[in-house]
Computed example of a mutant assay.
Amino acid sequence: MDRGHRAVPHTADVRVEAWAPDREGCLAEAVAALVETFADTAGARSDAEADFTVPAGGDEDLLVAVLDEVIFRLEIEGTLPLETEAQPVDGGVRVRWRTTGTDAVELVGAVPKAVSLHGLRFSGTDSGWRCAVTVDV
């Protein structure tokens, strides 16, 4: 299975889907999908790194926590991830971002406000991992 992501039309909100061979790759693709819904990062260069750990929990909880962190840092710090690496740790996940400030990118869409739990999906099969999430804008 290849890695990838896309935005899907959704009334008044943003819906993204992502897929990858493993859970951590799918999380990274979901972050990229979310960022692409509101920012044009072409040509942007990272000027900082950030990392955090999401404790063990259900897979959907991990997805929500990682995407919530994108929104939190966007609102509080004015930063967003350009590259995401995720590694499993004790049932949870350690996330490392290469980041840039919002002043280094062009905002092209509605800025996300919250991750919706309605219609949230994140699961793995023998052929890889897939997720779908709606984000309130």
Score class of each variant (00 low, 15 high):
88 P>V: 10
40 D>G: 04
67 L>T: 07
57 G>R: 04
132 A>Q: 13
79 T>D: 03
96 R>Q: 13
100 T>S: 11
73 R>H: 11
31 V>F: 01
131 C>G: 07
129 W>P: 01
98 R>Y: 01
31 V>R: 00
130 R>Y: 08
91 G>E: 12
63 L>Y: 03
120 L>M: 11
130 R>M: 06
56 A>D: 14
47 D>G: 14
131 C>S: 12
79 T>H: 03
128 G>V: 13
88 P>Q: 13
74 L>I: 02
53 T>H: 03
74 L>C: 07
33 A>T: 02
102 T>Q: 14
36 E>Y: 06
69 E>A: 00
43 G>N: 06
36 E>I: 01
73 R>A: 09
113 K>H: 12
79 T>K: 02
94 R>M: 05
32 A>T: 12
123 S>F: 10
110 A>R: 06
85 E>F: 09
102 T>L: 15
87 Q>G: 13
127 S>L: 15
53 T>P: 02
55 P>N: 07
55 P>I: 07
85 E>D: 14
40 D>Y: 04
70 V>P: 00
112 P>V: 03
92 G>H: 04
52 F>V: 02
56 A>Y: 13
124 G>F: 10
116 S>E: 13
105 V>Q: 10
111 V>R: 14
129 W>H: 00
85 E>C: 09
95 V>W: 02
110 A>K: 01
83 E>G: 08
57 G>D: 06
35 V>R: 06
100 T>G: 11
86 A>M: 09
44 A>D: 00
120 L>K: 12
56 A>C: 09
65 A>Q: 04
38 F>W: 02
50 A>W: 07
49 E>G: 06
66 V>Q: 01
117 L>I: 11
86 A>H: 06
72 F>T: 11
49 E>I: 01
76 I>D: 12
69 E>I: 04
76 I>H: 09
116 S>G: 10
90 D>W: 03
67 L>C: 08
131 C>W: 04
43 G>V: 02
62 L>A: 09
32 A>M: 05
103 D>G: 13
121 R>K: 12
94 R>P: 00
49 E>P: 00
65 A>P: 05
37 T>K: 07
34 L>Y: 08
